[in-house]
Design a protein around this nucleic acid. Structure first.
Lengths: 147, 147
DNA sequence: TATTGTTATACTCTATAACTATA
DNA sequence: TATAGTTATAGAGTATAACAATA
């Protein structure tokens, strides 16, 4: 449309959006299918949040955009399996501080390793210049996703 | 784009795999959250398969890697809503040929448009050279995901 | 009265096992 | 006997509504 600075004919914005989105969804789908994981996606996501910092159930529900009862159940399952620790907040009796146990940290690390393995095997077979493009794209996409 | 081998031993393979995977998952996650869709992800996926070509329930179950009863239910829901058409196979009475109705095609198109919209808005704000990187990355990632 | 969290209940998507109809 | 598909039943994950405990 407006931009013509590039020597090559730029991909129309709608088409590019579609291609980028589809590519990302295909990769996510394959990674999900290939990795035989100990924890489910939503559990992984919650544990990753707790890795950054201890949080309350309410905070997690807000971040993950699920209802309070749903998060309550997810957390209960992780506590039961020994991956998450519950501690009463000394300053506010209503709240419960949730954090990762060493077992939880190990599970999270192992889960990431399995997921990366599938991708690493495939990236290994790419020529160097394509890997360079993916490195740049990853930075751009992460920035876009965080907006 | 120039290859611009700024750093030959640039990103370690494991790190790159992690960054690319995370970037794709973040994009997928945001797209999923942002798009208020008429159809659920698994329904979208099935309808997209039928757009390529009419198929049987069994075929769809295999492609989508779900059980036959699960696919049976998913398809039943789409038929009930008028998005998918059932037709008895004249050569094999056991089989049922499934295909998209015009309504189904319209829903699929609309769903794609909504999903692309979120991405398009964000890509619009990127400089041209970054969009070029994403265009190339999309092609590479689609190839990798299809392996 | 407002907030944090849980329990009660229901809906959806998934699965395995058992069943019907056809080859 | 094998295959395509459905029905029966159960297990997760999600939601809203109602409840308890604390601020």
């Amino acid at each position: 449309m407006t931009t013509k600075s590039s020597s090559q004919a730029s991909t129309p914005l709608g088409t590019l959006a579609n291609e980028v989105r589809l590519a990302c969804m295909r990769i996510s789908r394959r990674v999900r299918f290939e990795s035989t994981d100990v924890i489910a996606p939503h559990q992984f996501s919650v544990m990753a949040r707790l890795e950054d910092a201890p949080r309350t159930s309410r905070e997690l529900a807000g971040i993950e955009r699920v209802s309070a009862p749903s998060m309550s159940r997810t957390v209960a399952g992780l506590v039961e399996r020994g991956f998450v620790l519950r501690q009463d907040d000394p300053t506010d009796g209503r709240q419960v501080i949730l954090s990762l146990t060493p077992e939880g940290q190990a599970v999270l690390k192992d889960s990431r390793r399995r997921r990366d393995q599938w991708m690493a095997v495939r990236l290994k077979n790419l020529p160097a210049h394509e890997r360079e493009i993916l490195a740049r794209a990853a930075e751009i996409l992460s920035r876009v996703a965080g907006e």
